[in-house]
């Protein structure tokens, strides 16, 4: 008689938070070491320490806050507008036959248009002030929101809606208490995408007529081949992305604790 060998291993990768953080930190240290030991030329790739110094200089001079607040304001308003509009349209398209096919056709047609290409048009329509910047962000956020909301609404288990109908719940009650909570996981998941999209579009939106803002800052630094500040700006954008992702994660924990 021989022992039965274990065959059920593998295919179950675990998340090790320490490894995530450790890897990032390790890469940065490696980069810094390479730069300090002159293996990597710092002429066009600044060392992490240079980037940190550029960030510190920005913070000390107060410039950091000026750029950050200008961009955060545009992000907040643009994202909010695009999200609210996207949720409403997504709900309408998800719930009404009349809206469904026309709605999805329009969304599918307009979604793939690169928003950067539309910036000149937005300038003509909305001017070079805050309007065109916010609209660019809202436009970029709108379409993924509609698509995710429709998917979320579609994904609400039909049996729950029929249960609501069988108990005589009103249409609006069913939407509010069954459809929306049921679509919420998909909607929140969509927020991860739309916040990233908004940050990416920030640079495009701030290309025209923006004196202050992280996107404008990154563009100006690029023009001047000021690589320290360029990468500092990119680090800032990246940080904003990470923070927003964390916030959404907490929202999911809070609102979706029933899962």
């Amino acid at each position: 008689m021989a022992e039965v060998p274990f065959r059920g291993g593998g295919f179950a990768p675990r998340d090790i938070p320490a490894a995530s953080v450790g890897t990032l930190v390790g890469l940065v240290l490696l980069w810094q070491a390479g730069a300090s030991l002159h293996w990597i030329s710092t002429k066009f790739l600044p060392a992490p320490w240079d980037i940190a110094r550029a960030l510190y200089a920005l913070a000390a001079s107060g410039e950091l806050w000026v750029h950050l607040s200008a961009s955060l304001q545009r992000l907040a308003i643009g994202w909010a507008v695009g999200t609210v509009a996207g949720l409403v349209v997504g709900l309408v398209v998800g719930l009404f036959t009349l809206a469904r096919s026309p709605g999805m056709a329009v969304v599918s047609a307009l979604f793939p248009i690169p928003k950067i290409a539309l910036v000149p048009l937005f300038i003509i329509w909305f001017g070079i002030g805050e309007g065109s910047k916010v609209i660019t962000l809202a436009f970029g956020v709108f379409f993924p929101t509609v698509i995710n909301t429709v998917a979320g609404v579609d994904g609400v288990p039909r049996n729950l809606i029929r249960m609501g109908q069988s108990f005589g719940l009103g249409w609006w009650s069913i939407v509010r208490k069954i459809v929306l909570p049921g679509a919420l996981p998909a909607i929140l998941s969509g927020f991860r995408i739309t916040t990233s999209t908004a940050i990416i579009l920030l640079v495009a939106a701030e290309m025209i007529g923006a004196e202050k803002g992280i996107g404008a800052f990154v563009l100006a630094a690029g023009n001047l081949y000021d690589t320290d500040n360029l990468l500092a700006g990119i680090v800032l954008l990246s940080t904003i992305g990470l923070v927003l992702s964390w916030v959404i994660g907490r929202m999911e924990k809070l609102l979706l604790s029933w899962r």
Binding site: P120, I128, M207, G209, E211
Partner: peptide
Amino acid sequence: RPLQGVPNMVAAVRSGQ
């Protein structure tokens, strides 16, 4: 106001922006 290109600059002046 950085406007990226001369046509944008001229258009912005002509429209008073």
